[in-house]
Write a protein that binds this DNA or RNA. Sequence first.
DNA 1: TTCTCTGTTCGCAAAGTTGCGAACTATTTT
DNA 2: AAAATAGTTCGCAACTTTGCGAACAGAGAA
Lengths: 110, 110
Amino acid sequence: MKKNRDYTLDSEQLARFAKALGHPARITIMEFLASQDSCFFGDIHDELPIAKATVSQHLKELKDAGLIQGEIEPPKVRYCIHRENWKLAQQMFGNFFAKNGADKKICCEE
Amino acid sequence: MKKNRDYTLDSEQLARFAKALGHPARITIMEFLASQDSCFFGDIHDELPIAKATVSQHLKELKDAGLIQGEIEPPKVRYCIHRENWKLAQQMFGNFFAKNGADKKICCEE
DNA sequence: TTCTCTGTTCGCAAAGTTGCGAACTATTTT
DNA sequence: AAAATAGTTCGCAACTTTGCGAACAGAGAA
């Protein structure tokens, strides 16, 4: 085991993004936010087969990961994609997959 | 709440991939596998700051998600990227991010 | 056979996740 | 002020994840 050595910051950031996307409800939320102009909590809730308390929790996780942001617009709350971090995630995933392009030689193969 | 309705298969599959990548050790493993020709368990273990039992567990999760495969080569075990599923993941993530391109209009913004 | 090398599995502990209904907060309407 | 609307937070239950050391399993070497 490699001692006295942590993961790289990039690995940790990418893992954080991936973890946040690691639930079908959160994937669905991100897709919904991208397809809509109206993105109030209620609209999101209507799209998901789970209770509002649970939706709120998933939104909190996406927010903690930096992928979305919410602003209060009484009496509603409007959620939307955090564009800057979204671009960062897109770029990091892209780079991650690019490093093992389909054309790259991979071990275990002849 | 949307009743009697599950998530789409695509959302579930993408979430499964994302979840598998949602830990820095597993990100590191995938990057390592992509950068090496030798990818025995021991080599992977040497790169990570965790016990071999834990490494074995992370490898199992990546295997369960279909992202890698392992073959016994006595007395060692050789791991490698599962190219077909890796391509699928790459494609699905690409498509997921593409649907919210940086140029797309997003709610909450003027 | 016995010993060594390489990984996996077991059993455990601590912590995190997912989900719900009920209770709460804040604003707006009546 | 009281009631309605829109979400969040609380408290709970069930389950999963992460991590470790110890015990185990399988193949090759002594």
